[in-house]
Amino acid sequence: MDNGLPRLILAAILAAALLALPALVEAAGRGYWTGIATHVLIFALAAGSLNLILGFGGMVSFGHAAFLGTGAYVVGILSHHASMGIPIATWPFAIAGTESALIAWPLAMLAAGALAFVIGLISLRTGGLYFIMITLAFAQMVYFFFVSLEPYGGDDGLSMWSRSRLPGLDLGSDTQFYYVVLALVALAYFLKSRVIHSRFGVVLRGSRDNDRRMRAIGHPTRRYRLAAFTLAGAVAGLAGALIANQTEFVSPAFLHWTRSGEMLVMVILGGIGTVLGPALGATAFLLLEEVFSGWTEHWMIVLGPLLLAVVLFAKRGLWGLVSRPGEVPRD
């Protein structure tokens, strides 16, 4: 890569800025920005997981919020039972709630991944517009499931007593929570950058570009697409677990279809099929929301034209503009 060095320097600056962020905003007397940055990072994780299937797999899923919300509810429900001292189940064996992140977060990923596996198993039999509609339909089913889940607040949602517990750390501290989120997001993006170039990744991308030919040369593509869908669901579940922790509250709003739409917008805005694009898209989206929603609740009036401009003029989104403008798209 001819521009390897500038990229490395850019990455180092970015890493330093992210690491120093809590101290910097504290010094600037804007400590609450740590929370905003955490929020951005969590959605960078969620949008990044969507990009794995959307950008690299060509699967336009309009139901990604279902996995986010499921992950959030797993953490919320486990924490609810732990704080109330009521077991989740007594038969066939007793299951108690927990506030431990080491148990609750992997469970959130597992539940969201399992849900994604089932939804993917059915949805991936279709393609194109039907796939968009069927994933949306499944997400709506999950949404209404949680709306009608009265023991856990139904429409009103469920408050958590505290954030999850992690040995040696205090996640109740916004700064410490920020660093935990940052570490997880960085790890996820690093793994993703490996995966998309692995054998699995090239099969996924080949199937995105020409699924028929992939099958004709002997790749059973559906199982790889399903694996990617499941993986993306699990990572979205982790993002959900984190968002539940940040807000210490879960509600069906996390699963609303507009959430799925927002994640799609983040990916498209940042750059479909680019590794860091979704992080950029999540940042731009949430910062625009932060700034403009203070002026007017119709802040989407600002987002709309911006999204239009990106879609019309920047094939690879904001990332395409800042990284290598004018380059022929190739991944």
């Binding site: 490996r194 995966v195 692995s198 054998r199 990744g201 090239v202 040369i217």
Partner: peptide, 20 residues
């Protein structure tokens, strides 16, 4: 062409090493 070679080389549940 390498994609076609890979189809012969067994399953693609390999997530780490760069294929190319």
């Amino acid at each position: 062409v390498a994609l076609a070679v890979q189809a012969r080389a067994g399953h693609a549940f390999r997530f780490w090493r760069p294929a190319w």
